[in-house]
Design a protein around this nucleic acid. Structure first.
Lengths: 217, 217
DNA sequence: CTGCATTTTGACCAAGTAGTCAAGTTTTTG
DNA sequence: CAAAAACTTGACTACTTGGTCAAAATGCAG
């Protein structure tokens, strides 16, 4: 948009042409598919280029290194992926807030399983590209929400439970359906595709977790 | 290559020498470390050979293909990994049986995180090497145990809950601590190493799940 | 239309890696 | 102990793959 820079100045810091915008998008979309399936090492630039419908040198014109595509993709994905956590409202009803959070996560696992797998693969391999992100951005966010949950527990609105482990449990359970999809399908077979499966999953997960943390007396 | 008929018996189908036993073990142990960290594609035979303390051609003398090592390792690991599930006793007390199962799984995640990661990585990438195993061995086992749980529910010994989703939840939650160890550490920091952390984890997981499925009236 | 900037690609290169091979060394066995 | 079998490895091959480059094609402002 900012077309700006007059022609004969020094190297312009950055301008984005229409073609650039289109092709970067094509590349990133293709890369998400491929990286999430084969992992970083298992993916070749040729694969991404083919899926994006362009030649390898052309792809490298937009992202000079394989790493660049991968990191850009992770950054772009992660913020979105964590958004639901940030939305937990300390002033809301605990059970309702957590129900909403879990529901959102299950939906995301269904609609964007590639994002989940991309992330899972990265973390599984030691998070070499995003360890900074984990400590600088994720940890503070989790700390804050853990504080909220701890307060709820203190007020007797939830059964006594370690907030960090509760959050891990929600992550693990919801992402399981994206990350281990093949296994889920191998076991549950045709049920997985059927309409209503997602609702059934949400129902089961919500039932166990929410009853597990509902205050008892 | 007419091999000696001079010996009276035909070629023995397989015999294992002392050296073979030692070296296969060395290779598989080394391979587990490397494969579980870098995945199949991310691992080189040289890496495994070096870690096993032998030359690459020597390693290939025992396992002619990289795939062979990988598959052998998966087979060896999987049976052991699933053993606890098989131990769930239909005649036992439901809550006690599940408590035992969850506890065993958490212990395994702590003592053999590499096995968990090896498996997670394989499934995450579509289980190309073990899809047969999943349908032929894992599915029947899970079906059987799901039947047991369903019966418990029918007898009112557990809250109404889908047995498959319950099993997935237990898998997801317990393996999370092995597979996403880096993330858990990034968030919980020094606590992870501390003695008692495993117990605290087990306590939290057990508390939520068991209370989530305890019969209500 | 013209000329410059942007985009595109075929051909190529260097590094890395799975797997081979033939020739040596060690272990087993009769 | 000597021959056979089992084991070990340096050197090598064939192939994959990340990345380069120079030249051609296309887009676009004046």
């Amino acid at each position: 948009m900012a077309r700006a820079e007059s022609k004969k100045l020094k190297e312009a810091p950055e301008k984005t042409t229409r073609i650039q915008e289109i092709n970067r998008r094509l590349i990133l979309d293709a890369a998400l598919d491929v990286f999430s399936t084969y992992g970083f090492r298992g993916t070749t630039i040729d694969q991404i280029a083919e899926r994006a419908g362009m030649s390898k040198p052309n792809l490298l014109y937009y992202f000079p290194r394989k790493q660049n595509i991968y990191v850009t993709l992770l950054e772009e994905t992660l913020t979105e992926w964590l958004a639901p956590l940030a939305e937990i409202d300390a002033e809301g009803d605990p059970i309702e807030q957590l129900r909403k959070y879990i529901t959102l996560k299950i939906n995301m696992s269904e609609t964007h399983p590639e994002a989940s797998r991309l992330f899972a693969n990265e973390v599984l391999h030691g998070a070499p590209a995003i360890s900074d992100f984990l400590t600088k951005y994720l940890k503070p966010l989790v700390d804050e929400k853990a504080g909220v949950i701890r307060r709820w527990v203190g007020e007797g609105k939830l059964a006594p439970v370690d907030p960090y482990h509760l959050i891990f449990m929600i992550w693990a359970t919801t992402q399981h359906y994206a990350d281990f999809d093949v296994q889920v399908r191998a076991i549950m077979g045709s049920q997985v595709g059927r309409p209503g499966f997602k609702e059934q999953t949400a129902q089961a997960v919500l039932s166990i977790i929410l009853n597990g943390i509902r205050p008892r007396n």
